[in-house]
Design a protein around this nucleic acid. Sequence first.
RNA 1: GGAGGGGUGGCUGAGUGGUCGAAAGCACUGGUCUUGAAAACCAGCGAGGUUAGCGCCUCCCAGGGUUCGAAUCCCUGCCCCUCCGCCA
Length: 430
Amino acid sequence: MLDPRSLRREPELIAQALSKRGLVFDLDTYEELESSRHDLQTEMETLQHDRNEISRTIGQAKRDGLDIEPLRLSVSEIGYRLDVVKQEFGKIRDELDAFLLSIPNIPHESVPDGADEEDNLVLRQHGTTPEFNFKPKDHVDLAPGLLNLELAVKISGSRFSVLRGPLAKLQRSLTQFMLDVHTEQHGYEEVYVPFIVNAASMTATGQLPKFAEDAFHVEHTEPMYLVPTAEVPVTNFVRDEILSADDLPMKFVAHTPCFRSEAGSYGKDMRGIFRQHQFEKVELVQIVSPDVSWDAFEELLGHAETILKMLELPYQASVLCGGDLGFAAAKTIDLEVWLPSQGRYREISSVSNFLDFQARRAQARFRRKAGERPELVHTLNGSGLAVGRSLIALMENYQNGDGSVTIPDALRSYMGGIDSLKLADADGQK
RNA sequence: GGAGGGGUGGCUGAGUGGUCGAAAGCACUGGUCUUGAAAACCAGCGAGGUUAGCGCCUCCCAGGGUUCGAAUCCCUGCCCCUCCGCCA
Protein backbone atom coordinates (compact mmCIF):
# COMPACT_ATOMS: atom_id res chain seq x y z
CA MET A 1 0.00 0.00 0.00
CA LEU A 2 1.15 3.51 -0.70
CA ASP A 3 1.53 6.01 2.09
CA PRO A 4 -1.97 7.51 2.52
CA ARG A 5 -0.42 10.75 3.74
CA SER A 6 1.68 11.34 0.65
CA LEU A 7 -1.27 10.36 -1.46
CA ARG A 8 -3.40 12.97 0.26
CA ARG A 9 -0.71 15.60 0.02
CA GLU A 10 0.41 15.13 -3.55
CA PRO A 11 -1.94 12.89 -5.50
CA GLU A 12 -0.94 14.39 -8.87
CA LEU A 13 2.69 13.53 -8.27
CA ILE A 14 1.82 9.96 -7.42
CA ALA A 15 -0.52 9.64 -10.38
CA GLN A 16 2.37 10.84 -12.54
CA ALA A 17 4.76 8.31 -11.01
CA LEU A 18 2.27 5.48 -11.51
CA SER A 19 1.83 6.33 -15.16
CA LYS A 20 5.20 4.67 -15.73
CA ARG A 21 3.34 1.41 -15.26
CA GLY A 22 0.90 2.38 -17.96
CA LEU A 23 -1.65 2.86 -15.23
CA VAL A 24 -4.18 5.64 -15.25
CA PHE A 25 -4.73 6.59 -11.65
CA ASP A 26 -8.33 7.62 -11.07
CA LEU A 27 -7.76 10.93 -9.33
CA ASP A 28 -11.42 11.94 -9.32
CA THR A 29 -12.62 8.80 -7.61
CA TYR A 30 -9.83 9.03 -5.12
CA GLU A 31 -10.43 12.63 -4.22
CA GLU A 32 -14.14 12.09 -3.90
CA LEU A 33 -13.64 9.14 -1.56
CA GLU A 34 -10.99 10.92 0.41
CA SER A 35 -12.99 14.06 0.94
CA SER A 36 -16.06 12.07 2.01
CA ARG A 37 -13.88 10.13 4.38
CA HIS A 38 -12.50 13.30 5.86
CA ASP A 39 -15.88 14.96 6.35
CA LEU A 40 -17.53 11.87 7.79
CA GLN A 41 -14.67 11.15 10.11
CA THR A 42 -14.67 14.69 11.44
CA GLU A 43 -18.41 14.60 12.03
CA MET A 44 -18.26 11.18 13.60
CA GLU A 45 -15.51 12.15 15.99
CA THR A 46 -17.29 15.31 17.02
CA LEU A 47 -20.43 13.33 17.81
CA GLN A 48 -18.43 10.74 19.71
CA HIS A 49 -16.81 13.49 21.69
CA ASP A 50 -20.17 15.02 22.61
CA ARG A 51 -21.61 11.68 23.57
CA ASN A 52 -18.61 10.77 25.70
CA GLU A 53 -18.87 14.03 27.51
CA ILE A 54 -22.56 13.65 28.34
CA SER A 55 -22.08 10.03 29.34
CA ARG A 56 -19.41 11.09 31.76
CA THR A 57 -21.78 13.66 33.18
CA ILE A 58 -24.45 10.99 33.59
CA GLY A 59 -22.07 8.82 35.55
CA GLN A 60 -21.27 11.74 37.82
CA ALA A 61 -24.90 12.74 38.22
CA LYS A 62 -25.81 9.19 39.15
CA ARG A 63 -23.18 9.10 41.84
CA ASP A 64 -24.50 12.39 43.15
CA GLY A 65 -28.02 10.98 43.21
CA LEU A 66 -29.33 13.48 40.67
CA ASP A 67 -32.01 12.91 38.06
CA ILE A 68 -30.34 11.69 34.88
CA GLU A 69 -33.42 11.48 32.69
CA PRO A 70 -32.96 14.88 30.91
CA LEU A 71 -29.37 14.02 30.11
CA ARG A 72 -30.38 10.65 28.68
CA LEU A 73 -32.80 12.34 26.35
CA SER A 74 -30.23 14.82 25.12
CA VAL A 75 -27.76 12.07 24.32
CA SER A 76 -30.19 9.80 22.53
CA GLU A 77 -30.44 12.24 19.64
CA ILE A 78 -26.69 12.20 19.28
CA GLY A 79 -26.91 8.41 19.30
CA TYR A 80 -29.24 8.30 16.30
CA ARG A 81 -27.14 10.70 14.30
CA LEU A 82 -23.99 8.84 15.26
CA ASP A 83 -25.40 5.53 14.04
CA VAL A 84 -26.09 7.04 10.66
CA VAL A 85 -22.74 8.74 10.32
CA LYS A 86 -20.88 5.69 11.56
CA GLN A 87 -22.50 3.51 8.95
CA GLU A 88 -21.72 5.94 6.16
CA PHE A 89 -18.19 6.32 7.37
CA GLY A 90 -17.71 2.55 7.50
CA LYS A 91 -18.92 2.22 3.95
CA ILE A 92 -16.63 4.94 2.63
CA ARG A 93 -13.68 3.66 4.60
CA ASP A 94 -14.14 0.16 3.17
CA GLU A 95 -14.34 1.61 -0.31
CA LEU A 96 -11.29 3.73 0.27
CA ASP A 97 -9.38 0.76 1.71
CA ALA A 98 -10.29 -1.37 -1.28
CA PHE A 99 -9.19 1.44 -3.54
CA LEU A 100 -5.87 1.88 -1.75
CA LEU A 101 -5.21 -1.86 -1.71
CA SER A 102 -5.62 -1.98 -5.46
CA ILE A 103 -2.98 0.66 -6.20
CA PRO A 104 0.40 -0.83 -7.13
CA ASN A 105 3.72 0.37 -5.82
CA ILE A 106 5.41 3.41 -7.34
CA PRO A 107 8.23 2.41 -9.70
CA HIS A 108 11.66 3.55 -8.59
CA GLU A 109 13.17 6.36 -10.67
CA SER A 110 15.74 3.98 -12.14
CA VAL A 111 13.00 1.79 -13.64
CA PRO A 112 12.96 2.26 -17.42
CA ASP A 113 9.85 3.28 -19.31
CA GLY A 114 8.13 0.61 -21.32
CA ALA A 115 4.96 -1.34 -21.88
CA ASP A 116 5.92 -5.00 -21.58
CA GLU A 117 8.83 -7.39 -21.38
CA GLU A 118 10.06 -6.30 -24.80
CA ASP A 119 11.08 -3.05 -23.17
CA ASN A 120 13.06 -4.58 -20.31
CA LEU A 121 16.65 -3.45 -20.26
CA VAL A 122 19.47 -6.01 -20.35
CA LEU A 123 22.06 -4.89 -17.81
CA ARG A 124 24.73 -7.53 -18.35
CA GLN A 125 25.36 -11.01 -19.58
CA HIS A 126 27.48 -13.68 -17.99
CA GLY A 127 28.97 -16.88 -19.40
CA THR A 128 29.01 -18.06 -22.98
CA THR A 129 26.15 -19.83 -24.62
CA PRO A 130 27.04 -23.41 -25.56
CA GLU A 131 27.76 -24.46 -29.15
CA PHE A 132 26.54 -27.91 -30.12
CA ASN A 133 27.78 -30.01 -33.03
CA PHE A 134 24.41 -31.69 -33.04
CA LYS A 135 20.85 -30.46 -32.84
CA PRO A 136 20.19 -29.77 -29.16
CA LYS A 137 17.06 -31.28 -27.70
CA ASP A 138 14.73 -29.62 -25.28
CA HIS A 139 14.25 -30.95 -21.77
CA VAL A 140 11.20 -32.98 -22.74
CA ASP A 141 13.02 -34.94 -25.41
CA LEU A 142 16.07 -35.33 -23.24
CA ALA A 143 14.31 -37.34 -20.57
CA PRO A 144 11.62 -39.52 -22.08
CA GLY A 145 10.26 -41.73 -19.37
CA LEU A 146 11.85 -39.88 -16.51
CA LEU A 147 9.83 -36.79 -17.17
CA ASN A 148 6.32 -38.14 -17.32
CA LEU A 149 3.72 -35.56 -18.21
CA GLU A 150 1.04 -38.03 -19.28
CA LEU A 151 1.08 -39.59 -15.85
CA ALA A 152 0.70 -36.17 -14.27
CA VAL A 153 -2.27 -35.44 -16.52
CA LYS A 154 -3.93 -38.63 -15.31
CA ILE A 155 -3.28 -37.81 -11.67
CA SER A 156 -3.99 -34.10 -11.77
CA GLY A 157 -4.26 -32.44 -15.16
CA SER A 158 -2.20 -30.29 -17.45
CA ARG A 159 0.67 -28.19 -16.14
CA PHE A 160 1.73 -30.79 -13.62
CA SER A 161 4.63 -33.19 -13.86
CA VAL A 162 6.01 -36.42 -12.51
CA LEU A 163 9.78 -36.73 -12.27
CA ARG A 164 11.27 -40.13 -11.81
CA GLY A 165 14.49 -41.73 -10.62
CA PRO A 166 17.64 -39.77 -11.36
CA LEU A 167 15.71 -36.81 -12.70
CA ALA A 168 13.85 -36.44 -9.41
CA LYS A 169 17.16 -36.79 -7.62
CA LEU A 170 18.72 -34.14 -9.82
CA GLN A 171 15.99 -31.70 -8.85
CA ARG A 172 16.47 -32.54 -5.19
CA SER A 173 20.22 -32.06 -5.55
CA LEU A 174 19.72 -28.64 -7.06
CA THR A 175 17.53 -27.68 -4.14
CA GLN A 176 20.01 -28.92 -1.56
CA PHE A 177 22.86 -27.20 -3.31
CA MET A 178 21.05 -23.86 -3.37
CA LEU A 179 20.01 -24.07 0.27
CA ASP A 180 23.55 -24.96 1.32
CA VAL A 181 25.13 -22.08 -0.58
CA HIS A 182 22.71 -19.52 0.83
CA THR A 183 22.94 -20.74 4.41
CA GLU A 184 26.67 -21.46 4.47
CA GLN A 185 28.02 -18.67 2.27
CA HIS A 186 25.41 -15.91 2.22
CA GLY A 187 24.24 -15.86 5.83
CA TYR A 188 20.59 -16.84 5.43
CA GLU A 189 18.62 -18.77 8.01
CA GLU A 190 16.86 -21.76 6.52
CA VAL A 191 13.19 -21.87 7.41
CA TYR A 192 10.45 -24.40 6.85
CA VAL A 193 7.04 -22.83 6.49
CA PRO A 194 3.36 -23.59 5.87
CA PHE A 195 2.34 -24.07 2.24
CA ILE A 196 -1.22 -22.99 2.93
CA VAL A 197 -1.76 -19.46 4.19
CA ASN A 198 -4.63 -17.26 5.25
CA ALA A 199 -6.05 -14.24 3.44
CA ALA A 200 -4.32 -11.77 5.74
CA SER A 201 -0.93 -13.11 4.71
CA MET A 202 -1.80 -12.97 1.02
CA THR A 203 -3.03 -9.42 1.42
CA ALA A 204 0.10 -8.30 3.22
CA THR A 205 2.41 -9.34 0.40
CA GLY A 206 0.06 -8.03 -2.29
CA GLN A 207 -1.45 -11.15 -3.88
CA LEU A 208 -4.86 -10.18 -2.53
CA PRO A 209 -7.30 -8.68 -3.12
CA LYS A 210 -6.44 -7.98 -6.74
CA PHE A 211 -4.94 -11.26 -7.91
CA ALA A 212 -7.15 -13.84 -6.24
CA GLU A 213 -7.66 -15.73 -9.48
CA ASP A 214 -3.92 -16.39 -9.79
CA ALA A 215 -3.87 -18.44 -6.61
CA PHE A 216 -5.27 -21.83 -5.71
CA HIS A 217 -7.58 -21.53 -2.81
CA VAL A 218 -8.82 -24.04 -0.30
CA GLU A 219 -11.95 -23.91 1.77
CA HIS A 220 -11.23 -24.59 5.39
CA THR A 221 -12.79 -22.98 8.45
CA GLU A 222 -11.86 -19.81 6.57
CA PRO A 223 -10.64 -19.32 2.99
CA MET A 224 -6.99 -20.27 2.60
CA TYR A 225 -4.49 -20.21 -0.23
CA LEU A 226 -1.75 -22.44 -1.54
CA VAL A 227 1.43 -20.39 -1.50
CA PRO A 228 2.32 -18.95 -4.92
CA THR A 229 5.82 -18.31 -3.54
CA ALA A 230 7.60 -18.67 -0.21
CA GLU A 231 7.68 -14.88 -0.14
CA VAL A 232 4.18 -15.01 1.31
CA PRO A 233 4.70 -17.14 4.42
CA VAL A 234 8.22 -15.86 5.06
CA THR A 235 7.56 -12.13 4.70
CA ASN A 236 4.58 -12.61 7.01
CA PHE A 237 6.94 -13.65 9.79
CA VAL A 238 7.08 -9.95 10.63
CA ARG A 239 3.45 -9.04 10.06
CA ASP A 240 2.09 -7.02 12.99
CA GLU A 241 5.47 -7.06 14.69
CA ILE A 242 7.50 -4.22 16.10
CA LEU A 243 11.12 -5.30 15.81
CA SER A 244 14.11 -3.70 17.38
CA ALA A 245 16.90 -2.30 15.23
CA ASP A 246 19.27 -5.13 16.13
CA ASP A 247 16.81 -7.68 14.76
CA LEU A 248 17.61 -6.29 11.32
CA PRO A 249 18.52 -7.34 8.79
CA MET A 250 16.61 -10.61 8.81
CA LYS A 251 17.66 -12.98 6.06
CA PHE A 252 15.66 -16.11 5.38
CA VAL A 253 15.90 -18.83 2.77
CA ALA A 254 13.05 -21.26 2.25
CA HIS A 255 12.46 -24.10 -0.14
CA THR A 256 8.81 -24.59 -0.92
CA PRO A 257 6.60 -25.82 -3.66
CA CYS A 258 4.81 -22.93 -5.34
CA PHE A 259 1.28 -23.13 -6.67
CA ARG A 260 -0.05 -20.88 -9.38
CA SER A 261 -3.26 -21.24 -11.29
CA GLU A 262 -1.67 -19.62 -14.36
CA ALA A 263 -5.07 -18.31 -15.27
CA GLY A 264 -4.65 -16.04 -18.25
CA SER A 265 -1.63 -17.87 -19.57
CA TYR A 266 -3.48 -20.59 -21.47
CA GLY A 267 -1.49 -21.70 -24.46
CA LYS A 268 1.68 -20.04 -23.21
CA ASP A 269 4.76 -22.19 -22.60
CA MET A 270 2.70 -25.35 -22.79
CA ARG A 271 5.58 -27.69 -23.61
CA GLY A 272 7.37 -29.42 -20.79
CA ILE A 273 7.71 -28.13 -17.27
CA PHE A 274 8.61 -24.52 -17.92
CA ARG A 275 5.30 -23.16 -16.66
CA GLN A 276 3.57 -25.37 -14.12
CA HIS A 277 0.77 -25.16 -11.60
CA GLN A 278 3.21 -26.59 -9.06
CA PHE A 279 6.93 -26.01 -9.02
CA GLU A 280 9.83 -25.94 -6.59
CA LYS A 281 11.59 -22.77 -5.64
CA VAL A 282 14.29 -21.69 -3.25
CA GLU A 283 13.40 -18.20 -2.13
CA LEU A 284 15.46 -15.53 -0.42
CA VAL A 285 13.72 -12.96 1.75
CA GLN A 286 15.26 -10.00 3.52
CA ILE A 287 13.66 -7.71 6.08
CA VAL A 288 15.83 -4.63 6.42
CA SER A 289 16.07 -1.08 7.65
CA PRO A 290 14.92 1.49 5.06
CA ASP A 291 18.34 3.10 4.81
CA VAL A 292 19.99 -0.02 3.44
CA SER A 293 17.36 -1.62 1.26
CA TRP A 294 19.04 -0.73 -2.03
CA ASP A 295 22.32 -2.21 -0.80
CA ALA A 296 20.37 -5.28 0.25
CA PHE A 297 18.83 -5.38 -3.21
CA GLU A 298 22.24 -5.56 -4.90
CA GLU A 299 23.41 -8.09 -2.34
CA LEU A 300 20.40 -10.33 -2.84
CA LEU A 301 20.75 -10.13 -6.60
CA GLY A 302 24.38 -11.17 -6.20
CA HIS A 303 23.34 -14.14 -4.08
CA ALA A 304 21.00 -15.37 -6.79
CA GLU A 305 23.63 -14.81 -9.47
CA THR A 306 26.15 -16.83 -7.47
CA ILE A 307 24.04 -19.93 -7.98
CA LEU A 308 24.00 -19.45 -11.75
CA LYS A 309 27.72 -18.80 -11.76
CA MET A 310 28.48 -21.87 -9.66
CA LEU A 311 26.33 -23.98 -11.93
CA GLU A 312 28.11 -22.33 -14.87
CA LEU A 313 24.92 -21.49 -16.65
CA PRO A 314 24.92 -18.57 -19.10
CA TYR A 315 22.53 -15.86 -18.03
CA GLN A 316 21.67 -12.23 -18.30
CA ALA A 317 20.27 -9.70 -15.86
CA SER A 318 17.44 -7.43 -17.00
CA VAL A 319 15.77 -4.61 -15.20
CA LEU A 320 12.02 -4.75 -15.67
CA CYS A 321 10.39 -1.77 -17.31
CA GLY A 322 7.46 0.02 -15.70
CA GLY A 323 4.87 -1.91 -17.65
CA ASP A 324 6.30 -5.31 -16.72
CA LEU A 325 6.86 -4.55 -13.06
CA GLY A 326 4.98 -6.65 -10.52
CA PHE A 327 2.23 -5.09 -8.42
CA ALA A 328 4.11 -4.70 -5.15
CA ALA A 329 7.63 -4.06 -6.44
CA ALA A 330 9.37 -0.71 -6.71
CA LYS A 331 12.08 -2.30 -8.81
CA THR A 332 12.76 -5.77 -10.12
CA ILE A 333 15.74 -7.30 -11.80
CA ASP A 334 15.15 -10.63 -13.50
CA LEU A 335 17.86 -13.18 -14.03
CA GLU A 336 17.32 -15.01 -17.30
CA VAL A 337 19.06 -18.24 -18.14
CA TRP A 338 19.99 -19.37 -21.62
CA LEU A 339 17.78 -22.12 -22.99
CA PRO A 340 19.34 -23.71 -26.09
CA SER A 341 16.04 -25.23 -27.22
CA GLN A 342 14.43 -21.82 -27.34
CA GLY A 343 17.52 -19.90 -28.39
CA ARG A 344 16.85 -17.22 -25.87
CA TYR A 345 17.16 -16.23 -22.25
CA ARG A 346 14.25 -17.08 -19.98
CA GLU A 347 13.39 -15.95 -16.47
CA ILE A 348 14.84 -18.10 -13.71
CA SER A 349 14.90 -15.59 -10.88
CA SER A 350 13.20 -12.35 -10.01
CA VAL A 351 14.73 -10.05 -7.44
CA SER A 352 12.60 -7.23 -6.08
CA ASN A 353 12.71 -4.39 -3.62
CA PHE A 354 9.26 -3.58 -2.25
CA LEU A 355 10.46 -0.73 -0.06
CA ASP A 356 7.72 -0.16 2.55
CA PHE A 357 4.86 -1.26 0.29
CA GLN A 358 4.43 -4.73 1.77
CA ALA A 359 5.51 -3.56 5.21
CA ARG A 360 2.68 -1.03 5.33
CA ARG A 361 0.12 -3.68 4.42
CA ALA A 362 1.69 -6.02 6.93
CA GLN A 363 2.25 -3.36 9.59
CA ALA A 364 5.78 -4.70 9.88
CA ARG A 365 7.75 -2.15 11.83
CA PHE A 366 10.91 -1.63 13.82
CA ARG A 367 12.15 0.84 16.39
CA ARG A 368 15.52 2.48 15.82
CA LYS A 369 15.92 3.26 19.53
CA ALA A 370 13.82 2.56 22.60
CA GLY A 371 11.21 5.25 23.02
CA GLU A 372 11.18 6.27 19.36
CA ARG A 373 8.22 5.85 17.08
CA PRO A 374 8.05 2.59 15.16
CA GLU A 375 8.95 2.84 11.47
CA LEU A 376 8.04 0.53 8.62
CA VAL A 377 10.73 -1.92 7.57
CA HIS A 378 11.64 -2.58 3.96
CA THR A 379 11.12 -6.00 2.43
CA LEU A 380 12.91 -7.67 -0.45
CA ASN A 381 12.97 -11.05 -2.00
CA GLY A 382 14.35 -13.00 -4.89
CA SER A 383 14.37 -16.50 -6.24
CA GLY A 384 17.59 -18.23 -5.55
CA LEU A 385 16.58 -19.96 -7.84
CA ALA A 386 13.48 -21.40 -9.41
CA VAL A 387 14.41 -25.07 -9.12
CA GLY A 388 12.27 -26.48 -11.91
CA ARG A 389 13.63 -24.02 -14.39
CA SER A 390 17.16 -24.64 -13.13
CA LEU A 391 16.59 -28.29 -13.91
CA ILE A 392 15.55 -27.42 -17.45
CA ALA A 393 18.52 -25.10 -17.94
CA LEU A 394 20.93 -27.66 -16.60
CA MET A 395 19.61 -30.46 -18.81
CA GLU A 396 19.58 -28.38 -21.94
CA ASN A 397 22.89 -26.55 -21.52
CA TYR A 398 24.81 -29.62 -20.35
CA GLN A 399 23.44 -32.09 -22.87
CA ASN A 400 25.72 -34.26 -24.94
CA GLY A 401 25.28 -35.75 -28.40
CA ASP A 402 24.48 -39.18 -26.96
CA GLY A 403 21.56 -37.80 -25.00
CA SER A 404 23.42 -37.80 -21.69
CA VAL A 405 23.70 -34.77 -19.46
CA THR A 406 26.93 -33.71 -17.77
CA ILE A 407 26.63 -32.91 -14.08
CA PRO A 408 28.25 -29.55 -13.27
CA ASP A 409 31.10 -29.73 -10.74
CA ALA A 410 29.19 -27.86 -8.06
CA LEU A 411 26.49 -30.51 -8.06
CA ARG A 412 28.52 -33.70 -8.23
CA SER A 413 28.82 -34.30 -4.52
CA TYR A 414 25.03 -34.05 -4.28
CA MET A 415 24.65 -36.62 -7.05
CA GLY A 416 26.83 -39.25 -5.42
CA GLY A 417 29.94 -38.22 -7.32
CA ILE A 418 28.74 -39.10 -10.82
CA ASP A 419 29.82 -36.79 -13.65
CA SER A 420 27.01 -37.46 -16.09
CA LEU A 421 23.51 -38.83 -16.32
CA LYS A 422 22.02 -40.91 -19.06
CA LEU A 423 18.44 -39.79 -18.88
CA ALA A 424 17.22 -41.15 -22.18
CA ASP A 425 17.37 -44.84 -21.47
CA ALA A 426 17.55 -44.87 -17.71
CA ASP A 427 15.37 -47.10 -15.58
CA GLY A 428 12.29 -44.95 -15.66
CA GLN A 429 11.85 -45.33 -19.40
CA LYS A 430 9.06 -47.61 -20.46
C1' G B 1 -14.32 -35.79 17.14
C1' G B 2 -15.99 -35.19 22.82
C1' A B 3 -15.47 -32.20 27.66
C1' G B 4 -13.63 -27.96 29.99
C1' G B 5 -10.67 -23.25 30.40
C1' G B 6 -8.83 -18.94 28.02
C1' G B 7 -7.48 -14.63 24.41
C1' U B 8 -5.74 -7.47 28.08
C1' G B 9 0.31 -2.91 26.34
C1' G B 10 7.39 -5.75 24.18
C1' C B 11 6.54 -9.99 28.04
C1' U B 12 3.91 -11.83 32.70
C1' G B 13 -0.61 -10.46 34.61
C1' A B 14 -4.84 -7.62 37.57
C1' G B 15 -9.24 -5.63 36.15
C1' U B 16 -17.31 -8.21 35.83
C1' G B 17 -21.00 -1.59 33.47
C1' G B 18 -19.02 4.93 34.58
C1' U B 19 -12.44 9.84 35.51
C1' C B 20 -9.74 2.40 32.60
C1' G B 21 -5.96 3.26 27.54
C1' A B 22 -6.00 0.10 31.62
C1' A B 23 -3.01 -1.92 38.49
C1' A B 24 1.45 -4.46 39.50
C1' G B 25 5.92 -6.87 38.07
C1' C B 26 9.59 -7.68 34.25
C1' A B 27 12.02 -5.50 30.12
C1' C B 28 13.43 -0.81 28.17
C1' U B 29 15.07 4.71 28.42
C1' G B 30 16.93 8.91 31.34
C1' G B 31 18.78 10.48 36.12
C1' U B 32 20.98 9.93 41.29
C1' C B 33 24.75 6.95 43.50
C1' U B 34 29.60 4.37 41.83
C1' U B 35 36.55 4.61 39.54
C1' G B 36 33.30 1.44 36.31
C1' A B 37 29.46 -2.12 36.60
C1' A B 38 25.73 -4.42 39.55
C1' A B 39 22.24 -3.30 43.31
C1' A B 40 19.18 0.49 45.27
C1' C B 41 16.34 4.88 44.57
C1' C B 42 13.70 8.71 41.36
C1' A B 43 11.35 9.68 36.68
C1' G B 44 9.59 8.19 31.96
C1' C B 45 7.66 4.33 28.94
C1' G B 46 1.39 0.89 24.20
C1' A B 47 -0.38 1.67 19.00
C1' G B 48 -3.05 4.29 15.21
C1' G B 49 -5.78 8.57 13.20
C1' U B 50 -6.32 13.93 13.06
C1' U B 51 -4.14 18.83 14.31
C1' A B 52 0.64 24.19 13.40
C1' G B 53 -0.17 23.12 18.55
C1' C B 54 -3.44 22.47 22.68
C1' G B 55 -6.52 18.85 22.07
C1' C B 56 -9.96 15.38 20.11
C1' C B 57 -11.16 10.32 18.26
C1' U B 58 -10.24 4.97 17.93
C1' C B 59 -8.02 0.38 19.62
C1' C B 60 -8.13 -4.57 25.74
C1' C B 61 -8.51 -11.42 19.35
C1' A B 62 -12.24 -10.17 15.12
C1' G B 63 -17.30 -8.94 13.73
C1' G B 64 -22.18 -7.94 15.40
C1' G B 65 -25.61 -6.70 19.65
C1' U B 66 -27.52 -4.57 24.57
C1' U B 67 -26.74 0.39 27.10
C1' C B 68 -26.69 7.34 27.98
C1' G B 69 -21.99 4.69 28.75
C1' A B 70 -18.60 -1.87 27.43
C1' A B 71 -11.94 -4.46 28.50
C1' U B 72 -16.20 -5.75 31.69
C1' C B 73 -22.92 -8.21 29.68
C1' C B 74 -25.04 -11.15 25.09
C1' C B 75 -24.32 -13.60 20.07
C1' U B 76 -21.13 -15.40 16.04
C1' G B 77 -16.34 -16.44 14.19
C1' C B 78 -11.08 -17.27 14.67
C1' C B 79 -7.07 -18.74 17.69
C1' C B 80 -4.64 -20.90 22.07
C1' C B 81 -4.39 -24.25 26.43
C1' U B 82 -5.82 -28.88 29.40
C1' C B 83 -8.02 -33.83 29.45
C1' C B 84 -10.11 -37.93 26.46
C1' G B 85 -10.48 -40.20 21.52
C1' C B 86 -8.18 -40.76 16.71
C1' C B 87 -3.80 -40.28 13.96
C1' A B 88 1.68 -39.66 10.38
